[in-house]
Write a protein that binds this DNA or RNA. Structure first.
Ligand code: MN
Ligand code: MN
Ligand code: MN
Ligand code: MN
Lengths: 218, 218
DNA sequence: AGATAAATTTTGACTTCTCAAAAATATTAT
DNA sequence: ATAATATTTTTGAGAAGTCAAAATTTATCT
């Protein structure tokens, strides 16, 4: 069985490398280790056929590595859902918790969680949960920043999972599944204003921030 | 913060050494490591003031070590309770699960579990759950094997947590909290027969087995 | 092209955890 | 009291994971 560290490396490589090679520096930064540490680990990963490693060029998952990465991701996202739904842990805190728990849950326990939640398709941030066979749905959402003024959309996914941002979104009811109407979008001030409910609670945010909110048709 | 391994060592020393010194061999066997490994670890533990170590004699927790051990035990037993109550995991399986999860739950998550369960005093095996301050209730139960024939008792605690035994007990409704009446106890066959419910479902077991079931007055 | 800067790899070192096998110590039996 | 046995400690070794700093390679800029 892979160690917790190996699981985290594989998961990160999956999340950051889309088919392409992921540069070592980026991997090291994401995992908060020195570049040399990442190189050493990626060599071990390559020796065990989990990744393809091209020195000075980057790293990429093998099918085997991708399989493990998706398994870890499934555990991570199911746990996040569970923590929010059942234990009422704050939206913004579940990621850190899941980062540890993902390495400690057995397949049996994960099944129990999956059943209790009714086999959810998406986690609290709108990220898709891979199924037990390693399949993951890849839907195409649009950036809220690039949507039409006056139209209504459904929030689908949050692409920035930093604590402050999630807290801000939660405070203004901007969670996946909820509806928003774009009241205005002003290139001059680089801000847009949204209506988040019928009570007229509006919120204004930077277009850069709105580009981290993915939406779909209502 | 202590590593998972250190936590397991401290917990085990707590469980096996009652005020007295715990011999190295016993510790090594319990943790399934070689004697040399246990010695090496205990030396590190002694260097960090978690245990007192008397070479060739044994090991004992310091107040600081005991504090950590009780904290781990609290996590372990709350998690066991949670797995049984909320996730309906089998009685006999929760120990292994908790052995991993105890090192992965944050204080915040543990609090959420504790609240959801209503601050339970005992885990599914009847073992007392230390409170947040490190206090643990130490009640005196009697061995079912040494009880009066014809009398009724309440099962308080199971002192043998091997899978087969727990499965056997569960099948015959011999769980902490339930009532049993001793129908007979025969020194010749070294067996005793119990009535476990009103429907007349009786069960016969060895007196040695019954000595691992602790009971109290109903 | 040649120099400078940036990214990456190597090297040397350290901690934690582990085992196997040899050495030392303690216990038990004769 | 010796010898035999059991327990414990030491020694030597290795895997995993990490960092700091030096060396190397690649990319960028005159
Ligand atoms: Mn993780
Ligand atoms: Mn998520
Ligand atoms: Mn454990
Ligand atoms: Mn228990």
């Amino acid at each position: 069985m892979p160690t917790a560290t190996v699981e985290d490396y594989l998961k990160q490589i999956y999340l950051e490398s889309g088919e392409k090679l992921l540069p070592m520096g980026q991997l090291a930064t994401a995992l908060d280790v020195t570049p040399g540490t990442a190189t050493a680990m990626v060599k071990r990963l390559a020796a065990s056929k989990m990744v393809l490693y091209q020195p000075y060029n980057g790293v990429q998952l093998t099918p085997q590595g991708k399989h493990t990465a998706l398994d870890v991701l499934r555990r991570h996202r199911l746990i996040e859902s569970f923590l929010v739904e059942v234990l009422k842990i704050d939206w913004a805190d579940v990621h850190e918790e899941a980062e540890q728990l993902e390495h400690a849950v057995s397949p049996r326990l994960l099944d129990a969680i999956d059943s209790l939640l009714g086999h959810p398709q998406f986690d609290p941030h709108g990220d898709p949960i891979p199924d037990g066979g390693g399949d993951i749905s890849h839907q195409s959402n649009q950036l809220l920043a690039e949507c039409q003024v006056g139209s209504q959309y459904r929030i689908a996914r949050i692409a920035d999972q930093r604590n402050e941002f999630l807290h801000f979104l939660a405070k203004h009811n901007l969670r996946p599944g909820n509806l928003v109407t774009i009241l205005s979008s002003d290139p001059a001030s680089e801000a847009m204003t949204l209506r988040t409910d019928l009570a007229g609670n509006d919120v204004t945010l930077a277009i850069t921030a709105a580009s981290r909110i993915l939406v779909c048709e209502p």
